[in-house]
Design a protein around this nucleic acid. Sequence first.
DNA 1: ACGCGCTCGTGAACGCATTCACAAAGTCGA
DNA 2: TCGACTTTGTGAATGCGTTCACGAGCGCGT
Lengths: 241, 241
Amino acid sequence: MSEQRAAQVDGAVGAVGAGTPATDPAPRRRGIPDASVARLPLYLRSLHGLAEGGRTTVSSEALAAAAGVNSAKVRKDLSHLGSYGTRGVGYEVDELVHHISNALGLTQHWSVVLVGVGNLGHALAGYGGFASRGFQIAGLLDADRGRVGEQIAGLMVRHMDDLDEVVRGNGVSIGVIATPARAAQEVCDRLVGAGVTSILNFAPTVLQVPPGVDLRKVDLSMELQILSFHEHRKSAKGVPA
Amino acid sequence: MSEQRAAQVDGAVGAVGAGTPATDPAPRRRGIPDASVARLPLYLRSLHGLAEGGRTTVSSEALAAAAGVNSAKVRKDLSHLGSYGTRGVGYEVDELVHHISNALGLTQHWSVVLVGVGNLGHALAGYGGFASRGFQIAGLLDADRGRVGEQIAGLMVRHMDDLDEVVRGNGVSIGVIATPARAAQEVCDRLVGAGVTSILNFAPTVLQVPPGVDLRKVDLSMELQILSFHEHRKSAKGVPA
DNA sequence: ACGCGCTCGTGAACGCATTCACAAAGTCGA
DNA sequence: TCGACTTTGTGAATGCGTTCACGAGCGCGT
Ligand SMILES: NC(=O)c1ccc[n+]([C@@H]2O[C@H](COP(=O)([O-])OP(=O)(O)OC[C@H]3O[C@@H](n4cnc5c(N)ncnc54)[C@H](O)[C@@H]3O)[C@@H](O)[C@H]2O)c1
Ligand SMILES: NC(=O)c1ccc[n+]([C@@H]2O[C@H](COP(=O)([O-])OP(=O)(O)OC[C@H]3O[C@@H](n4cnc5c(N)ncnc54)[C@H](O)[C@@H]3O)[C@@H](O)[C@H]2O)c1
């Protein structure tokens, strides 16, 4: 299940400092396990839902139910952020939202550049879920001059040649790749060259990035094939060999 | 060398036995481990690339490099399918493609129904990666009658009321949800009711499915927030308190 | 004030996944 | 035919993540 779990961390980045200062007044923000980090956004979403429902406090059991996980997991995950629960009561929703947002770095806004404004790129560009979570699209880029100049969701598509300008001019640190697979590695290299240090890749191909750059991928075909496997197994089960 | 990483973790949300958490002693899976299954599509994609490049055999080392993983992992994963390698040589590309396809159930075509033909749904409907992997879209459905009748990629958008007909008439077993989050659970329930047993959810919400139904999710916002975490950590590192 | 009941936080057990390391098994050239 | 070389397949070691189980701490009612 977790699988997807979030895989392993990049060697260079993952090595959380030998002798980390850790003299923070607040929580121990030292090395939260990847698996926990991957669930924090889920808790955050669940908490927002609970807050809208009027809840001011929530127990690990209730939050676990909302997030669809085990309550012990919730408690252990949250314990990595510090001790913000009250025994006998639970967690204060607002406070928890604040601490999770803080841990995820969502207290600041992030600028994102989207490369490849085709079929998928259009959908992503128009997606409200970006802005509502603090991710601002600083630029839409495409190599096809026929697309340059097009307006999407209040933004104009610019040419790849403007990449450096867009990235440096807006302090962009996150890049999203929505180009065909064959162009993805080149685009990736250019993003890294321009200063992007986190990349989300939608193209179905394996990308190489230098140490220090984080890479995640979303691959629809792989998801379908995994479902296919389970379907296959299910149907085989009903039919005795 | 093999420092590739990046992973979608996500999770494979529940699978079998997700209903009531209380009673599940766990007579679980025998067979290929989930983590291995999740990589098979990756190997398949890499093998297709190698085949196009003219390779007829490939060693675990070479395949590992192409897929961005460790070679021992490749060998262990493939060993779950049987012993199809030749010591001293490697694996025959075509044969491996065949065996992996077989294990994943890709030797048959799967019919998919897509619910929610909005921003994202349009992109998915027009995505060639579906058909090329053996996933045929049997129907595009939407609750908005204003969208019904629209033609996308050779398919006409139909109303949700036709769900049962589409599913039963085409032997659909996989459903894709691309509706707003608030509608997702209802859509999910209707899909399950119509006979769908595998669901891929793009809506940012936790879905409940009965035992026997597989559920996977793709959540863009969560991916961005995970990247945000790492960015945050990186920048904090450079600025000692 | 004080005990009762509830829930957090966490040590420990467990299980799965990854990686190592190497014998077995095959190829290939001479 | 044979021996050197290559690569698989897999036991064993290691590490990570999940889950259990329970003591510690806190609020509340009396
Ligand atoms: N459409 C989907 O629903 C979907 C789903 C999952 C994955 N994907 C993947 O996402 C990617 C994009 O899919 P799509 O359907 O939008 O394809 P598309 O062909 O519609 O769009 C690709 C865009 O990338 C641009 N592009 C090409 N080379 C470029 C370069 N070197 N630099 C900058 N821009 C470049 C093209 O001009 C085009 O606008 C593909 O890799 C596809 O496999 C798409
Ligand atoms: N657009 C993106 O790039 C993107 C990215 C990631 C996730 N998502 C998620 O995917 C989902 C769809 O996003 P979108 O941008 O396409 O939204 P959208 O509003 O453009 O499209 C939603 C579609 O679902 C239809 N719909 C609503 N209720 C329905 C119901 N009960 N039954 C059937 N159809 C129904 C609507 O008529 C509409 O056509 C959302 O949950 C969104 O959060 C979107």
